[in-house]
Structures are given as C-alpha cells and as structure tokens.
C-alpha cells in the first residue's frame, strides 16, 4: 500500500513536471532568443484550455478538439507577436513587463466575454477512460499516462527540430549570439515570429492536455505562469535542458510537498528556487 501510494505520487509529479516543461521551454526560448520577458505566456495556457473545452464541446471528441485548436493557437501566437510583442524589441524589460501584463488583463476579460466565468469540465474520450489497478484500492488513471506520453512525444519532437533541422540550427544560433545571426543575413523578425508562436502553441498545448484533468476556469493561466517562471529561473534562462530538469524538480517537489507538508505545499517550489539560486544565481544551466 505504502509503496504504491508513493509510486502514484511519483507518476503524478512527473506528469506535472512534463506539463510545466511544455510551458517553460517556450518561455525560456522566448527569453533566450528574443530577450523578451513574456508575462502573457500563462494567457496562452488559458486560451489553449478554453479552446479545447469549446472545440471538444462542438465536435464531441477531445482529439479533434485538440487538432483544431492547434492551428488556432499558432495563428493567435503569431498575431500577438506581430501586433504587440514586436514593439518591444530593444526596449527596457520594464515596458515588456507592463505590456505583457496588459495582455493578461485583456486575455482574461476576453475569456470572460466569450466563455463566461463558470467552471467547465472537459470529457475524457472513451479510449482513455478508466485506470490501471495497482493494488486493491490504489489505481492510476490512464488519461494521466496519456498526458505524460504526449509530453514525451512533444519533447522528442522539439529535440529533433532544435538539434537536427536547419530551423533548429538557426534558433540555437540565435540563442547564443543574436547579432551574429542577423549579420549572417537571417531574417531575425521571421525567426522571432516563429519562436514566439511555437512557444505560445506549446503553452496552449499544455492547457489543452490538462483541461480534462484540472477543468477549465477563469484565472487558470495566472498561477501556472508564476510556477513556469520558477522553473525557468531554476533551469537557467535560455536553456531547454535546464527547463526540463527544473520542470521535473518542481513537479516532484510540488506533488510531494502536497502530500508531506500540506500546510506549506505551495511554498515548497519557491523555497527550492531560493535554495538553487543561493548556490547558483544564474540557475542550474544558465550562462553567467
């Protein structure tokens, strides 16, 4: 009983960590390549979750809902980059914080206009319903395993794009030396637009995948945004490897914190961050 209970918590922690990785990897790339602090990243998570709820409701199936929501998220990320974020390059972080904060206010109000302020749930498709029986009274839901495997697939896909393709090569070059990439004749605006809408789509995907588990409600993006910041800070800004390790650390710390220290659960992640930064101010894999 004891060991299977901890196994379930371990799986939950890893699954939460994978979801955080989807958010944090986009956030860290947007920081690292574009030099933009993007508070609106949580808004994309929220929009993903609501799009998933809306389109699943229309089509009656989660998979088609997600498949339809992905192109919408890409378009949305692209539009936000062109209309708002592109005015922020070479400006002080202060204005980036302020403008992306305004985007959160606007996104939250639009959500309340279009979808109202109720809590909605999203149905899990028949195939993924049910759970795996571990012992007599301990079971693990199949849908959570589906989230983890979807995240692993996405992570491998991202690894492939970034390490093996020409686009990925440009992105890596942009992360290490932006000016040099521009000097080599690569259209940096085009690269920024791609990186931003890619990050936005990853965040929206995290929202879509978690919608059936966490349900969909106003302000859903706000809390996860701050936790994703913590992940990025722990991992080191601009490092995808750091985001991966940081996300798993925070996912496990948060899950086990809720079990072992219920009164202080939400503080565990922040305490972990403080400890890491005390030891390495630039994060685990950050450059000085």
């Amino acid at each position: 009983m004891e060991s299977s209970f901890y196994l379930i918590q371990l799986l939950n922690g890893i699954q939460y960590g994978f979801l955080l990785f989807l958010l944090a990897s986009g956030l860290t790339l947007i920081f690292g390549i574009m030099g933009i602090i993007n508070l609106a990243h949580g808004a994309f998570y929220m929009i993903g979750a609501y799009l998933c709820y809306w389109l699943t409701g229309i089509t009656g199936n989660l998979f088609t809902g997600i498949l339809l929501a992905i192109p919408l998220s890409i378009l949305f990320g692209y539009a936000v980059e062109r209309l708002a974020i592109s005015h922020l390059y070479n400006r002080d972080h202060l204005y980036q914080v302020l403008l992306t904060y305004a985007l959160i206010l606007i996104a939250n109000e639009l959500q309340s206009i279009f979808w109202g302020n109720d809590v909605h749930s999203v149905a899990i498709p028949e195939v993924l319903k049910g759970s795996i029986q571990l012992t007599d009274n301990q079971a693990y839901p199949i849908y959570r395993l589906f989230i983890s495997s979807a995240c692993i697939v996405l992570a491998i896909l991202m690894y492939w794009v970034i390490q093996k393709t020409k686009l990925g090569m440009t992105i890596r070059a942009g992360a290490s030396n932006r000016e040099m990439v521009q000097a080599l004749g690569i259209n940096i605006n085009w690269l920024f637009a791609i990186v931003f809408s890619m990050g936005a789509t990853l965040a929206a995907l995290a929202g879509m995948l978690s919608a059936p588990v966490n349900s969909v409600y106003p302000g859903i993006g706000d809390n996860i945004l701050i936790i994703s910041f913590v992940v990025v800070v722990i991992g080191g800004i601009g490092s995808i490897k750091g985001a991966f390790i940081g996300a798993l650390l925070i996912g496990l710390a948060d899950t086990f914190g809720k079990v072992l220290l219920p009164e202080m659960a939400s503080m565990v992640a922040y305490a972990l961050m403080a400890a890491v930064l005390f030891w390495r101010p630039q994060g685990l894999f950050g450059k000085v």
Binding site: I226, V233, A265, M273, L277
Partner: peptide, 23 residues
C-alpha cells in the same frame, strides 16, 4: 542577480509570501 532574473525572483518571492499567508 540582475535583469530578467531580478524581475522573476522578486515576483517569485512575493508569491512565496502570498502563499504563506494564503495557506
């Protein structure tokens, strides 16, 4: 720290204090 790190750190510490009183 400085720059983006400073912004995010102050934010994270404030959230830590928030949750301390919230929970």
């Amino acid at each position: 720290t400085s720059g983006i790190y400073f912004i995010m750190l102050t934010l994270a510490f404030a959230q830590m204090c928030f949750y301390f009183f919230f929970e």
